[in-house]
Design a protein around this nucleic acid. Structure first.
Length: 774
DNA sequence: GTAATAATTATTTTT
DNA sequence: TAATTATTAC
């Protein structure tokens, strides 16, 4: 994934690698036993007298309170741009520097690897030394670490594999077969979703009540879930949700394990608490609540930025904090140091429309200029929108703003296309953040499957993936045979295949090819023992014929794929062992790109959370797109509020300027659809916004034709001045013309839109400025 | 077992 | 529209 913000790519990377190695060594060192004794590396933290640290200087009183309230439960409600990360990292350092805990006695949890990395770097900076040997990481990374120690309680062994989404789905499809489910009506990805939601809620198959099992796959969902879990154990594998689920289940049922962690962790810090799901909440509560009732847990979050409910996040966790942890203190961080007053005012006015809030008001923490108002621009169609956004970006760059400080934030992926096309034409450097990530590319996954098959003989999924890539004549029929042999002998696919090759049961080309594959795997193991994993993997990819497959491929992508494989082998060298590398791949799924020139970023609003830019473009603020129709249909009022929070997140990403756009019609799939301005626009306080609806249309008018029925929206040339057609000039009963829908009569009108009964296009609600009066 | 053709279906995706 | 996926014919 491309992420621009790491200040020093190489440094951060080396740093992370060091930590990963350390974590891994720690794993081996502890192996199944949680110890509260000193870790191998001596620490250099000596206690300091209370409050004397210079690190506390230049904090505002609320931030200071959030840091110095060390004991007991604490909820820090941190609005956007109020210095949340600073509080979290300083609090971490404070606990260490005042001698309240040793580095390994603090559990610090984040959602993203990026946040974990940033926190580790900043804590290290505050301490003046690299922060090693910490329990600091994402929920999943920490759980993976715990689960490797206690794997046997979950029915796994220490070296279990973590499956990616691809494997999960393939596995589920296999497991579903005996049920003969109608996959048209009950698509496997849907069922996988159901299972994931169960896991999000901490429900093992045994904990799923029959009442919850009625809706999917004719009530077989729970049974399939159970079979799926059983199969995972056979493969010595777990999926992503299992990392949380297994550990939580162990903590629930193994009091001695829980007690070990209670002894270990004196303080718990949690970032982005509003995004926790139920298992994560249970996991935290189990670890935080000691037998004596004490709980030194500090959760930082913002209920107004909860945008992941569709992934199982429960805003209720943060809303309920005081009940969960009696005696909890609450600190509100409301002073924003990021954005101008108008941006804050617009965001505050918008979010005030939400009902379920803990209530927070962002105030400006800076005394500098008011800044520009948030601009709202109505344009003719989605093409015009892309054009104006790109032109604006270009002229802002000419005024001295770096493209690296600008971002286009869209609601959904399909919106990126129009911008991309336009940017290619314009020649502005851009990047799309959150596309296919390096480790998700087919060739990279294939190569990783080779590595998994190498290290994990039980990993049937990896073996299945590579057995016929490159083509070795193993089709469904041959695979069936291998499966049957494996089942009969009670061994894994690769072991069974090796046996069949050995005793020459497989004849002809098939036997020969598979023989070569098994030899390649065997020789690679020898080489790995002798020359290390990098040389070994090079050998494996070569001998298996995988590299040749791409070398012979004449498609235009092939050279790029080979390049990616080269890069993969290069990355391999950053890790001490193949196991470390595979853990990194499974958990981190990130890959550093070399630093490049300043680029304009295009990303989804979800992807922008936690980032900030000088200038933010917010296109597509139209009903149906944003708020998204689907969320509205599925989530009702709650869905609307989440969309509104997303809008709030979008606006508050901007430091200096937020530019909102909406188009009169938008091409969705094949055809043009009329679109109404988003209701969120009406919720922005007038005093903080400027409207400039004419911009795109005047421009467009020059190139348009007379035809009302032309392919694509056009403005009739007859129209002299778009500004003259103000909303106020339209009355009920007026005869009007719309470029796409022809002529009609106004049947309703308010400040911004009118409803028109068209002769040929039915009744539509439209923005009044797109209407021409006859 | 593969290649060509038909059919299907379109959010958000921290790990 | 366009990309992915299932089906069918070879």
């Amino acid at each position: 994934m491309l992420r621009s913000c790491a200040p020093s790519g190489l440094c951060g990377r080396l740093f992370r690698i060091c930590l990963l190695r350390l974590a891994y060594r720690a794993c081996l060192f502890y192996k199944g036993e949680v110890t509260t004794s000193e870790p191998p590396s001596p620490s250099l933290f000596s206690p300091m007298p209370e409050g004397s640290g210079s690190y506390l200087a230049r904090l505002n009183p609320e931030q200071r309170a959030a840091i110095e309230t060390t004991d007991g439960p604490l909820l820090v409600l941190a609005g956007a741009g109020t210095g949340k990360t600073r509080v979290l990292t300083t609090r971490f350092a404070h606990i260490l520097l005042t001698g309240r805990a040793k580095p390994w006695q603090i559990l610090a949890v984040t959602f993203t690897n990026k946040a974990a990395r940033e926190m580790r770097e900043r804590v290290g900076l505050l301490l003046g030394a690299p922060a090693d040997g910490l329990w600091l990481g994402t929920f999943h990374a920490l759980c993976a670490r715990m689960l490797r120690r206690h794997a046997e309680y979950a029915g796994l062994t220490q070296g279990f594999t973590i499956l990616d989404t691809d494997d999960q789905l393939r596995l589920l499809k296999q497991v579903m077969e005996p049920w003969r489910i109608d996959t048209k009506r009950w698509p496997p990805p849907g069922l996988l979703g159901v299972i994931q939601r169960w896991k999000d809620r901490g429900l093992t198959p045994a904990r799923v009540t029959p009442a919850e099992d009625t809706d999917f796959a004719n009530g077989h969902a729970r049974a399939i879930y159970e079979a799926y879990q059983a199969r995972l154990l056979q493969l010595n594998a777990c999926d992503f949700g299992d990392l949380m689920l297994h550990v939580t289940e162990i903590l629930r049922t193994q009091p001695d394990v829980l007690a070990q962690y209670h002894r270990l962790f004196r303080y718990i810090l949690v970032d982005e608490y509003q995004d926790t799901n139920t298992v994560q909440y249970l996991w935290l509560r189990l670890l935080a609540k000691r037998p004596d009732g004490a709980a030194n847990i500090c959760c930082v979050g913002d209920d107004d930025q909860s945008i992941y409910s569709w992934r199982g996040a429960e805003v209720e966790n943060i809303l309920r904090f005081e009940k969960d942890f009696p005696g909890a203190q609450i600190v509100r961080l409301e002073r924003n140091y990021r954005s101008t007053r108008h941006i804050l005012g617009a965001a505050a006015g918008l979010i005030a429309h939400n009902a379920d809030r803990l209530g927070k008001t962002l105030r400006s923490g800076r005394d500098d200029a008011e800044g520009d108002k948030v601009s709202v621009t109505g344009v003719w169609d989605s093409d015009a929108e892309a054009r104006i956004v790109c032109e604006t970006a270009e002229s802002l760059r000419a005024q001295g703003h770096s493209l690296a400080e600008m971002a286009i934030l869209v609601r959904a992926g399909f919106q990126t296309r129009a911008f991309e096309e336009r940017l290619v034409q314009t020649g502005l450097p851009y990047r799309i953040v959150g596309g296919i990530r390096f480790y998700e590319r087919a060739e990279v996954r294939d190569a990783i499957a080779y590595m998994r098959a190498l290290t994990q003989p039980a990993d049937d999924l990896a073996f299945e993936r590579i057995v016929n890539v490159p083509k070795r004549g193993v089709g469904p029929a041959a695979l069936q045979k291998l499966h049957a042999a494996a089942r009969a002998a009670g061994v894994s696919l690769s072991v069974a295949t090796a046996q069949l090759v050995e005793n020459a049961t497989l004849k002809g080309k098939l036997g020969e090819q598979l023989g070569k594959l098994m030899t390649a795997l065997a020789t690679t193991r020898d080489i790995m023992a002798r020359d290390g994993h990098v040389v070994a993997i090079e050998h494996l990819l070569e001998e298996s014929g995988y590299l040749d497959m791409w070398r012979q491929d004449r498609s235009p992508e092939a050279p790029g794929r080979l390049e990616n494989l080269k890069e993969l082998v290069r990355a391999l060298a950053d890790f001490g062992t193949l196991g470390e590398f595979l853990e990194h791949v499974a958990l981190v799924m990130e890959h550093d790109e070399n630093a490049q020139e300043a680029r304009l970023s295009i990303m989804t609003l979800h992807g922008a959370k936690g980032l900030e830019f000088d200038i933010v473009f917010l296109p597509g603020w139209e009903e149906g797109v944003f708020p998204s129709q689907r969320t509205l249909d599925e989530g009702g009022q709650k869905g609307l509020e989440e969309e509104r929070r997303l809008a709030y997140v979008g606006i508050t990403r901007a430091r200096k300027q937020a530019l909102i756009f909406h188009a009169g019609s938008r091409r969705i799939y094949a055809n043009w659809q009329p679109s109404m301005p988003s209701r969120f626009l009406d919720e922005l306080p007038d005093e903080h916004i400027t409207r400039n609806d004419e911009g795109g249309m005047r421009h467009r008018g020059l190139h348009s034709t007379d035809s009302v029925f032309a392919n694509g929206p056009v403005i009739a040339r007859r129209r002299r001045d778009p500004l003259a057609d103000d909303a106020t000039s339209l009355q009920l009963g007026d005869h009007v013309r719309h470029a796409r829908f022809g002529v009609g009569i106004v049947i309703a009108a308010d400040r911004h839109h009118v409803e028109i009964a068209f002769e040929n296009a039915g009744t539509k609600r439209l923005l009044s400025s797109f209407i021409e009066k006859l």
